[in-house]
Amino acid sequence: MRVFVYATPLFPLASLPLARLATTRLHPRHTTWLLSLAAVVLAATSCGALGLVAIAALVRIPTLAHLAHLSHRVIATGDSTSGAIATIAGILFGAALLATATFTIARTRSLAAAFGHARALPGAASLVITQDQAADAYTIPGNPGRIVVSTGMLDALDTPARRALLAHEHAHLHGHHYLYATAARLAAAANPLVRPLAAAVEYALERWADEHAADTVGDRHQVAAAIATAAIAAKHTRARPSPTLALGAVFSRTSTPRLDDAGPVPRRVAALLAPAPRTSLPILAAGLVVIALAGLFALEAANDLQDLLSLAHVAARR
């Protein structure tokens, strides 16, 4: 029992390499699917295993074992988790539950606000154009969701670029992309070790929409130019400079910019200037194997505990 229950919480350590490999070696659509699934499974199994450790330790307390009609003698022979480890596991499990609940409430509230916002926007068309000098464009999730583009953004783009922008936003809208991001962020709230997966999912969603736009427009370079133009226009027409940007400027001044530590926009543009992405089947398979193994380990750990508890239950009846 020890092996499975202690190995399961280690799987999220694979998050960072998995995120890196999937981001570079898969089509963004597959990256999104694989990594959001991985985030949910790895977070659920690791937190579940912590809970198993805590339960296994709790039933070792004679009073509790008696209350649960379990034979303390059988339990004592079955498992020997140290009190310290069990306490830590219990605290982590409790923290994960609390973080998950907090995130769920906050995100539900945000999404409800977004849905209300999408409903309240004027007109019935999916596209809403706002009179605003600041170049801005975004998709609001809703039922139906809406696309908001400012006149400042339209002014900054030529016709093919506008087509690219709208194709990108429609991909978000019709693909219900916010669901993937929410699932991945929920997992990251439960177990912070899977945060790299959630960040990679969010980036992959943008790339997925970019690739969709490239397919629609039929010209990858056109889409790359549209993104670059829009980003530069947004930066120069923004009313209030964001503090994080000022920090970024301070830190970046020391060296010539490199793509490796650049923000998402230059990386998206570079990806579009490169040939269309293809999914590497071995990488995809490896990712699925990691997910399956984590699930299998967690199942075995749960089975082991259940066997022990059933045995202790039967023994207590005799």
Partner: peptide, 21 residues
Amino acid sequence: AVLSSFVNDLSDADEQLLRAL
């Protein structure tokens, strides 16, 4: 968290890089 912006905020280095690309 809930809105998908077409483009994220751009640092000065990012802008330089974009223009280079």
